[in-house]
Write a protein that binds this DNA or RNA. Structure first.
Length: 919
RNA sequence: GGGCGGUUGGCUCAGUGGUAGAGCACUUCCUUCACACGGAAGGGGUCGGGGGUUCGAAUCCCUCACCGCCCA
């Protein structure tokens, strides 16, 4: 094994082995527990970003965890055709050739998109493999697969037949940039510094004017009223009067409507029903005319008048403002900060326009009611739970869903028009002909919102609308993880379609993962260039390091401030594990002449290397039985600690607390196994006591084996690489049993004993450090004291401590680098010692051992410092005990513990005082 | 304007009533035969401000300030 773990050499090879081994493929196994996840399908145009990396690290960890527990695990991968995004990419490609999609025509264009998809569309899948995702690639699905298209059409027709889909002229969010309508939730409101123009609208009868404040003077030609609040005293006697629209001869009424806010501007707002969603509603209430002055191309229409027609909407604004000023009706221009709706894809300003579109009824439907209830009644769990409220709140205010998109790439809406304009919905041409009673039909030109197909993902990927064995076994899925921002776009809609078409919820648990931000707390965005490329990080540090880094920060949906500096920590952790394994394996190789007679075992030094495994006792035979294997204090301790770790990790994974799972593993493996158990094993491994040596080897190996399996879901590659090299291992750790805590191995006495041992070693090392001078001028003195093995007198407190220290003396000697050690009943009574104490024992080192001629004054200062520390603690604890309220009201255990603490602290303090008195 | 989340050592974060924790960074020391992607020993925080509840508050309540996200 190499001295440092090199992920680059390992990952590609291991992943290929896993795929070849078929570990990720799942078939229905009725009667056997299953765990299924349909991954959020990335856009076919997508490349892996940190948000994906986190999302997939979580999913894969949970899937691997369940797979090791013996469940049939299906993680179903796939891609979304991403209508707008993909069409945009291909259009840009055409643009470079000097073409537009219209030059090609629909059919050729769609062919071109397919060609693009074949060439570039699987980048992200390769990247997911780099991350180690254990997905069933044989089941890869795409939302434009023929089977999937069938599901989409089926869903549309069923919704249509149920009366939920309708065509209507409505105000839509028109993306001028993309030349299509987009849904409300694809709109991003961006706070912008704008202006508020105050324009005077004269009364038609010449009796003065009303000043109207607007952010959009270019829509003035489309005004069909001015509204004021009915309660506004400034206008109460003028409601109903006619105003002359500036720059025109047209007269419009002054109306009263609650929509007009008395606080906004002058309290009077112009109403443009064809260009503002609120004005549209006002217009409906007051039966106002809708005049479209801006067209789909973002230019002023003929209805805007000859002077303005053909101008771009923003140029027209300047032109109109200029004309208003010239006409003397521009009262003032105010600076004004407000939100402007933008298209989240093209980043262009949305134009609210009137347009014929297909909609799906949402508000008030039974479907929405059911979909709300299943979450509010706890049928679907959210983590963090607060997102359930977000979901329910949104459902309560849900609006109808604009389904049609003016695109070519996507599922073409299966509506067929007859020559008289009437229409039918149908799954295919034949059904359309049959339903319409004629074959003189034309299909709707628009395609469906991409989210319509995504909404069917959990079941359409399993064969729906056919009642397949896959669907029966794997559906409903068990887990969904996604970003909070698509809770409404995607999650809510899957719930709706799932309930409607399968009668079941599509998943039982939804985990909303954190947003990965940059180190300054900003979203990672291409435009800022602050993104970190996960693949680059994998190249540099390995997939395990990236996964561990993300998961250890993934706490309770809290956003993650991430930077590359966090990754080496995890890389180092993997390397630490690697080297611990090297140590264990090196020690197994060395023959142990002290033991030859393990029943049924072959000779440990038999040829063939791996035959050694036969001499190893299975973990189940290791126990804390007196005198047997695994019976030493450190051995009982590490096994007890391991059981606690197993419990912690399982429980953390069960509650999706990935950070807790990582922390438990990190602490155990590094701070307990490596720092203490490995070190404490060394005397036995290097000693001549055959059985002790054998026991140490077996426990080292057994605990390592368990740790690897415990860690595998989070760091799959390094654990596989090590585990496969352990003696006696065949197959893959992917399907090795996941550890379950064995309570019989819990050993509180061993844990208490080790607390004493660790405390003692730490205290004695501290003593040495304290007397080791720094700086180049003290090199000789430093070398002398570092080389010295201290003589020590140990005074244990209580029989337990005597036994513990007696048993662990070799370890103490080795790790604290001691010389002659004497166990004594009482402290030495002369001054020539330096002492340190821990709970359970005191240690006395002759002053002459530390440095020639300890300065009594200096030593006194040291003791005073220690006493001061104890005094501080004593003051706090006894302060509480002196409080009558504490003694009478606090829990008896708390009071008892405080009393015990005071006693212990007082005793230790007494000893220090005694030492000081001797100086 | 409404809702949600956050504010703990230099940095990134754990910690939901009983003596403040981790990793990184920092200081000193150590190239000891698993690992310098390492080991040992240290220093460092009145837990955003104010008020309240309680014997006891980082933790519960109120309030203010600031930061972020979502929605309108």
């Amino acid at each position: 094994m190499e001295k440092a773990y090199e992920p680059q050499d390992v990952e590609a090879r291991r992943y290929a082995e896993w795929e070849a081994g078929g570990y990720f493929h799942a078939e229905p196994a009725p009667g056997k527990p299953k765990y299924s996840i349909a991954i959020p399908p990335p856009n076919v145009t997508g490349t892996l970003h940190m948000g994906h990396a986190l999302n997939h690290a979580v999913q894969d960890a949970l899937g691997r965890w369940h797979r090791m527990q013996g469940d049939t695990v299906l993680i179903l991968p796939g891609m979304d055709h991403a209508g707008i995004a993909t069409q945009t990419v291909v259009s840009r490609q055409l643009e470079k050739e000097g073409l537009t999609r219209f030059d090609l025509g629909r059919e050729k264009f769609v062919e071109r998109v397919w060609a693009w998809k074949e060439e570039y569309g699987s980048r992200i899948l390769v990247q997911l493999k780099r991350l180690g995702c254990s997905y069933d690639w044989q089941r890869l699905r795409f939302t434009m697969d023929p089977e999937y298209v069938e599901a989409v059409l089926e869903a549309f027709v069923r919704f249509f037949d149920a009366g939920l889909i309708y065509r209507g002229k409505r105000m839509v969010n028109w993306s001028v940039g993309l030349q299509t309508v987009i849904s409300d939730i694809e709109v991003e409101n961006i706070e912008t510094d704008g202006s508020l123009w105050h324009i005077n609208y004269p009364f038609a009868d010449g009796s003065g004017f009303v000043t109207v404040a607007t952010t959009r003077p270019e829509t003035l030609m489309g005004d069909t009223a001015v509204a004021v609040n009915p309660a506004d005293p400034r206008y109460s006697d003028q409601i109903g009067k006619m105003l002359r629209l500036p720059l025109t001869d047209r007269e419009i009424p002054l109306i009263a409507d609650d929509y007009a806010s008395m606080e906004f501007g002058t309290g009077a707002v112009k109403i443009t029903p064809a260009h503002d969603p609120n004005d549209y509603e006002v217009g409906l209430r007051h039966n106002l005319e809708q005049i479209s002055v801006i067209g789909f191309d973002g230019k002023m229409t003929a209805e805007a008048g000859v002077r303005y027609a053909g101008w771009d909407r923003f140029e027209a604004r300047d032109l109109i403002v200029g004309d208003l000023e010239a006409a003397g009706v521009l009262e003032k221009i105010e600076r004004y900060k407000h939100s402007i709706p933008h298209c989240d894809r093209s980043k262009t300003v949305i134009e609210p326009l009137l347009s014929e579109q297909w909609f799906m009824k949402q508000a008030g439907t039974e479907l929405v009611a059911k979909s709300t209830a299943i979450v509010s009644d706890g049928g679907i769990d959210f983590a963090p739970s607060r997102y359930a409220k977000t979901y329910v709140d949104w459902m309560d205010g849900i609006r109808d869903w604009a389904l049609s998109r003016q695109l070519w790439w996507g599922h073409r809406i299966p509506i067929y028009y007859k020559s008289d304009g009437s229409y039918v919905a149908a799954r295919n041409w034949d059904e359309a002909v049959q339903r319409a009673g004629t074959d003189e039909l034309t299909q709707d030109e628009d395609v469906l919102d991409t989210w319509f197909s995504s909404a069917l993902w959990p079941f359409a990927t399993l064969g729906w609308p056919h009642q397949t064995a896959d669907l029966a076994y794997f559906y409903p899925t068990d887990f969904l993880t996604t970003a909070g921002e698509i809770l409404r776009l995607w999650v809510a809609r899957m719930v709706m379609t799932g309930l409607e078409f399968t009668g079941e919820k599509p998943f039982s648990d939804v985990y909303i993962h954190a947003t990965v931000l940059d180190k300054k707390g900003r979203r990672m965005q291409k435009s800022i260039g602050n993104g970190i490329d996960p693949v680059e990080m994998i190249d540099k540090y390995g997939a395990d390091a990236l996964r561990f880094s993300l998961l250890r920060l993934a706490s309770k949906g809290q956003d993650i401030k991430f930077s590359e500096e966090r990754i080496p920590e995890s890389r180092n952790f993997g390397n630490k594990l690697w080297n611990a394994a090297r140590f264990v394996l090196l020690n197994l190789e060395e023959p142990n002449p002290g033991v030859t007679a393990d029943p049924g075992a072959t000779a440990p030094d038999s040829p063939g290397g791996k035959d050694e495994e036969a001499t190893l006792t299975p973990p189940s035979l290791l126990g804390k039985g007196a005198g047997g294997l695994g019976s030493s204090l450190p051995e009982r301790w590490i096994q007890s600690r391991l059981q606690r770790t197993i419990t912690a990790v399982n429980s953390a994974l069960a509650s999706y607390d990935m950070d807790d799972a990582c922390a438990a593993l990190y602490d155990f493996q590094w701070n307990e196994y490596c720092d203490w158990f490995v070190e404490l094993s060394k005397p036995a491994l290097q000693g001549e006591d055959g059985p002790a040596k054998e026991s140490a080897r077996r426990v080292l190996l057994s605990v390592l084996d368990t740790t690897l399996r415990l860690l595998h879901p989070i760091m799959p590659f390094v654990t596989e690489e090590i585990w496969s090299n352990l003696p006696g291992k065949t197959g893959s750790i992917c399907v090795a049993p996941y550890p379950v805590a064995d309570e019989s191995l819990l050993d509180p006495a061993a844990e208490a004993g080790m607390t004493l041992v660790i405390g003692s070693i730490t205290a004695l090392r501290g003593l040495r450090a304290e007397f080791t001078p720094g700086g180049p001028e003290h090199e000789a003195a430093r070398a002398a004291i570092l080389a010295r093995r201290f003589r020590v007198i140990v005074v244990p407190e209580g029989e337990q401590a005597v036994d513990t220290l007696r048993a662990l003396l070799p370890s103490l000697v080795s790790l604290a680098r001691l010389g002659e050690v004497t166990l004594a009943n009482a402290a030495p009574t002369d001054a020539k010692y330096v002492s340190v104490g821990v709970a359970g024992a005191s240690y006395y080192v002759p002053a002459s051992e530390l440095l020639e001629g300890i300065d009594p004054a200096k030593e006194s200062v040291r003791l005073v410092g220690e006493i001061a520390k104890l005094d501080k603690e004593l003051a706090a604890v006894s302060g509480r005990l002196n409080n009558p309220g504490f003694v009478s009201k606090a829990a008896p255990e708390a009071v008892e513990k405080a009393r015990q603490d005071v006693a212990d602290l007082t005793e230790r303090r007494g000893k220090l005082e005694a030492r000081r008195g001797l100086l």
